[in-house]
């Protein structure tokens, strides 16, 4: 599997990353090497094998649907890089 520029740029877009040019070259090469290693899975005949999607032997145990104490607004904003109580603030989304 070749990791060309179009592929890595698409992955960056999907993953919300913007790599520097040298970083892009390095990580593309790493990714190519990793995918080469992963290609080993092609060798196996997997016809009829159900994918294993859940590790618990039992159905997930959900808690009762009742009101509980949650974070206060102050607590929720405590770690925010920028806020205008009671909101988180981000760069302008709607352009005039």
């Amino acid at each position: 599997m070749k990791v060309d520029e179009a592929l890595i740029l698409n992955l960056e877009k999907l993953a919300r990353l913007s790599l520097e040019a040298d970083e892009r070259v390095r990580l593309s090469a790493d990714l190519e090497e990793i995918l080469q290693m992963v290609a080993k899975l092609e060798e196996l005949n997997l016809e009829g094998v159900e994918p294993l999607r859940h590790m618990s032997p039992v159905k997930h145990q959900v808690r009762q649907d009742k009101e509980e104490a949650h974070l206060t607004i102050e607590e929720a904003l405590q770690n925010a890089p920028k806020y205008d109580k009671p909101f988180f603030t981000v760069p302008k989304v709607i352009k005039r």
Binding site: L14, A15, L19, I34
Partner: peptide
């Protein structure tokens, strides 16, 4: 970043079955 990019790749359109789905099958084996 390497793992995010790899993970994004194996979950992306056109590669999901070939990588992610397959790995889940092997996990069962």
């Amino acid at each position: 970043k390497r793992r995010i990019l790899l993970g994004t790749f194996v979950l992306s359109y056109g590669y999901y079955d070939q990588y992610f789905g397959k790995a889940q099958q092997v996990r069962r084996l």
